[in-house]
């Protein structure tokens, strides 16, 4: 693979984490405009762990997941009882608060005679663990996609279990879920934390891929793109968000046909698609029909 292809596939893998994170909340009936905040928490936590304290990346990634989950839990606690638009706005406010907190953090430490650590709006340089470990770009690509495959496998297992059915019921009819004795608030908090952990893991990998992060990386643009990926790809299956990422980054960006006005094409595509398929290309009905057909053939 060429260096360019490796870069594109690594980016597709990385951005899929936050798209999946948005998807998980969407199927539970909540739309978050704030997953980019938890992606940022993961990036900063993992960066601090490896670059400042020499902790190996796998351990740092676990720390980032824990931090992402904790942050999402704390944000969810007072906001998950809010309905639709209000929850969306509250998560947006939370993510912007996190971004400004990143701007305010100046926390550095001498490593090998040079200051390393988050330096406010100047960003956080020198997250070089991957280079110091001698990991080649194609190996890092493998790490990203192996982690993503693990996450996808977990989604597939959960969606086939009772847990998955409960999740979808929660999204479609929370009152029904409540009447069946499901503790809706608690359940949603758990989902929010899981989505936060997923975003945190993506952030940790992103920080190490890029070696440099800054608060602006985690602004509203990233969050809304992740939502758009999940929504255009489809809410019927976990491969929907991936399809969304592939359409934008792979097809529109990668092909370079629309260079210079890709946002106009992508924006229009999203708006028009939402008119005809408000739950995306691979929506529940499509997935159901597909399963049905496959079942009949075998």
């Amino acid at each position: 693979m060429s260096e360019y292809a490796i870069g594109v596939f690594t980016n597709i893998g990385l951005i899929s984490f936050i798209a999946l994170s948005a998807y998980l909340l969407l199927i539970a009936g909540e739309m978050s405009f704030g997953q980019q905040g938890f992606f940022g928490v993961g990036a900063y936590v993992a960066g601090v762990a490896t670059a400042m304290y020499g902790i190996p990346l796998p351990v740092a990634a676990l720390l980032a997941m824990a931090a992402g989950a904790a942050a999402a839990f704390l944000v969810g606690l007072p906001t998950l009882r809010l309905r639709g638009l209000y929850f969306a706005m509250a998560t947006l406010a939370a993510a912007e608060m996190l971004r400004i907190v990143f701007e305010l953090i100046h926390f550095q430490r001498e490593v090998e005679g040079e200051p390393v650590g988050p330096d406010g709006t100047q960003g956080f340089r020198g997250i070089r663990w991957v280079f110091e470990a001698g990991i080649e770009p194609q190996d890092f690509l493998a790490i990203v996609w192996a982690s993503l495959a693990l996450a996808l496998a977990m989604f597939v297992i959960v969606e086939r279990s009772r847990l998955g059915a409960t999740l979808r019921m929660l999204g479609e009819d929370p009152e029904l879920a409540r009447s069946l004795g499901i503790q809706v608030e608690r359940f949603k908090l758990g989902i929010a934390a899981a989505a936060g952990a997923l975003a945190g893991l993506g952030g940790a990998l992103y920080a190490h891929h890029n070696t440099y992060i800054e608060p602006r990386n985690f602004d509203i643009m990233l969050g809304v793109h992740s939502l758009a990926y999940a929504l255009i790809g489809g809410l019927g299956t976990v491969f929907g968000p991936l399809l969304g990422v592939l359409i934008d980054i792979g097809l529109l960006e990668g092909s370079r046909v629309f260079q210079g006005y890709r946002m106009i094409v992508f924006g229009g595509l999203v708006a028009v698609l939402l008119v005809f398929r408000p739950r995306g290309l691979l929506d529940e009905r499509f997935v159901h029909r597909l399963r049905h057909r496959m079942f009949r053939q075998t």
Binding site: M31, G84, L85, A88, V224, L227, A228, L231, Y261, R262, M263, I264, F266, G267, G268, L269, V270, A271, L274, V275, P278
Partner: peptide
């Protein structure tokens, strides 16, 4: 339909305006 779909669609057009 969904208020959420409208909100996301309005963001999609935001990107169009900015790039245009």
């Amino acid at each position: 339909g969904s208020a959420i779909a409208a909100m996301v669609a309005s963001f999609a057009l935001w990107m169009q305006f900015e790039e245009a």
